[in-house]
Design a protein around this nucleic acid. Structure first.
Ligand code: MN
Ligand code: MN
Ligand code: ZN
Ligand code: ZN
Lengths: 151, 151
DNA sequence: AAACTTAATAGTAATCATTACTAGAAACTT
DNA sequence: AAGTTTCTAGTAATGATTACTATTAAGTTT
């Protein structure tokens, strides 16, 4: 007979650590890094180790509960939203947000794509300056030119 | 009066090392990593150091002669083609190729994009299995599902 | 419930890619 | 020729991630 336990998450166990990490990733739209998650989660579970955070981010994403974001520079980031969607990253403050346009992938890319690859994932990352960073920060002469579309 | 020297590349000098690295990146479509470039270039210039390779890949890309590819997993890759274009990566053998569709970015993405970011770069990476890896390699049960477009 | 088996953890060590540093060489400027 | 700047080889340091190890917790079988 099957044990009545609430501590199961599909194929894997839901330890307190794993639950907390999952909640942390699900509960923000900021696409945090392992390190950020570690620091936040440590408030509630002071003995948790960074290795545990990495291990669980790995198992959670392998089992489809969260998404790894392997784009761009800097440390890897994680996303509680597992639906395929594109991101926009600020090249100055390195913030990472969802693109407002949903289904960008399906709408444009996949239909047009002719390839003999067996396609598993489409990654789209836009890079630029967020509104805040446009104002204050970067001198014109070291600022990259914006991309233009010919009319 | 200005010295007549062939060893200039815009703002930077064209040392033998830098020239060789540039030729190496320009001369392949394989999007090599710093390490691969280092090994290849070492045949002609056995004393070159890995640090020199990194430093020059940096200066060459900063000055717009080559392109850094900061997408995906694993070590950074470089591209002699500086035009914006999308790539497709095999999740099994990790090969990285240009997508046959050119101007994918301009055609689809930029026109549709409504954002208050100052856009500098659009990165598109498709991931999947290359034709070779589809055949032999990966057991069905660990193979990711392909992406589908609803009709 | 006791014994067994498996999964998960904290803590730490190891690895890998990249960056930083340093002293010397080469190129350019005066 | 002397001075200034850029570049180099070699090596050290860093930062993110992965691997390892001994221990604990959970689940299973008897
Ligand atoms: Mn997201
Ligand atoms: Mn390319
Ligand atoms: Zn910003
Ligand atoms: Zn392949």
């Amino acid at each position: 007979m099957e044990k009545k336990t609430e501590n199961k998450l599909g194929a894997i166990r839901l330890s307190p650590q794993r639950r907390l990490i999952l909640e942390e990733v699900m509960g923000t739209k900021k696409h945090p890094t392992a390190d950020v998650i570690y620091r936040n989660v440590k408030h509630k579970l002071p003995n948790i180790s960074l290795g545990t955070v990495y291990r669980n981010l790995e198992s959670l994403s392998e089992n489809g509960y969260i998404q790894r974001i392997d784009t761009g520079t800097g440390p890897r980031r994680y996303d509680g939203d597992t639906r395929p969607h594109a991101h926009i990253r600020c090249t100055s403050c390195d913030s990472l947000e969802d693109l407002p346009e949903k289904n960008l992938l399906e709408k444009f890319l996949l239909r047009e794509l002719k390839t003999d690859y067996y396609i598993q994932e489409v990654i789209i990352e836009i890079r630029g300056l967020c509104p805040e960073c446009q104002q204050s920060d970067i001198p014109e002469d070291i600022r990259q030119n914006p991309l233009q579309v010919e009319p």
